[in-house]
């Protein structure tokens, strides 16, 4: 099949690389999806090949088809460059670009999901972004070889829709940074906790050891309704993960509190699988209870665990909660539970 250039339809006009990069950054990468769709549209208009631009929108969204889509796009660019005798990339350059871009792009998702390294994730996004800018520079060259006309009139490099979307995103950014700023103001007491740190809560008369990374203590009310004596939040990269310490008076009945936990967890975790056990604290007639319930909701795993300890006067409880993706659940759960079970009560 031969391409039959059809130049009756105009392509998108040239836009400086930095403007394109700015738009991508402002829209948190969402513009990339539009970029792929527009690139496919222009290729269709130039070559007459049966591209379906809307499908290209989803190539970077779905992620996995990206290498194949990029391959087709790069080959089309090369064909156009060859026909119009434009300077272009060699076949090896196409392969290298595709490998690096797709690898960095997909790799960033994998790291976010499975490896939990924000630095590596940032590096990969940066590599993909730079490669994207290089490709846009190449597309600019192609578009300049054809008659171009913007779909909408541009003001200072962006059309009205882009301005609106960009400004909306900017407002979103501003709001987000403001919220983070507020949060930072609130969380002035937040302290990172090194793995292996024994947390001593003298006011509650208890201690336990946190053995996982990424924990920090947070002000009371951050993860509970404010009734806790002490709160810890888990790694920020996870959806939700926290520990909270509660105390009860000598008028609170041990069995009642333990059973209420069990009932509450069943209520908040639909279809949960639970286990409950009670034992005596060594060398005493004081009880301890461990209740844990877990379920799967919207593909993520949730776990509540309560370790309740009876003292001569009153009770103390360490509650742990995690709501994370299944693979992370498997990764974090064992130590998460062991840390909760490691609760030791001291007399207040």
């Amino acid at each position: 099949m031969t391409d039959s250039p059809s130049t009756h339809q105009k392509v998108a006009p040239y836009r400086a690389v930095w403007l394109e990069g700015l738009l991508t950054i402002v829209t948190m990468g969402c513009y990339l999806f539009v970029w792929f769709a527009l690139a496919a549209r222009d290729c269709k208009r130039i070559t007459g090949r049966p591209f379906t631009p809307i499908l290209w929108f989803f190539a970077p969204v779905v992620c996995l088809p990206l290498p194949f889509a990029s391959h087709i796009l790069l080959n089309t660019f090369s064909d156009i460059e060859a026909k119009r005798q434009l300077p272009g990339w060699s076949k090896m350059q196409n392969i290298a670009w595709n490998g690096l871009f797709s690898g960095a792009y997909i790799g960033a998702y994998v790291v976010a999901e499975f490896i939990d390294s924000q630095t590596l994730q940032f590096v990969l996004w940066a590599v993909a972004f730079i490669l994207f800018l290089l490709l846009h520079r190449r597309l600019n060259r192609i578009r300049q070889a054809f008659e171009s006309e913007p779909m909408m009139h541009r003001f200072a490099g962006f059309n009205a829709l882009e301005w609106v979307v960009g400004l909306l995103f900017l407002a979103l950014w501003a709001g987000l940074f403001w919220a983070l700023g507020q949060l930072k103001l609130v969380n002035v007491d937040t302290t990172r906790i090194e793995p292996g740190t024994e947390i001593v809560v003298p006011g509650a008369g208890m201690r336990f050891t946190v053995n996982q990374e990424g924990w920090e203590n947070v002000p009371i009310g951050t993860v509970t309704d404010g009734t806790a004596e002490y709160e810890l939040r888990g790694p920020a990269s996870l959806n939700n993960m926290w520990y909270a310490v509660f105390t009860y008076t000598e008028h609170d009945d041990f069995s009642e509190v333990a059973q209420n936990r069990y009932a509450t967890y069943l209520e908040v975790l639909p279809g949960a699988q639970c286990s409950a056990s009670r034992s005596l604290q060594e060398g005493t007639d004081l009880l301890r209870s461990v209740v844990s319930c877990e379920n799967t909701e919207a593909g993520d795993k949730q776990l509540y665990i309560s370790h309740l300890i009876e003292r001569e006067k009153g009770l103390v409880e360490l509650v742990g909660y995690m709501w994370v993706a299944p693979r992370k659940y498997t990764q974090y759960k064992p130590q998460f539970i062991m840390d909760v079970k490691g609760l030791i009560a001291d007399e207040k």
Binding site: L266, R278, L280, V291
Partner: peptide
């Protein structure tokens, strides 16, 4: 029924 009696292992001298 989804709430069951807790396992007990109350050991004392």
């Amino acid at each position: 029924v989804n709430r069951f009696p807790p396992d007990l292992n109350l050991e004392h001298q």
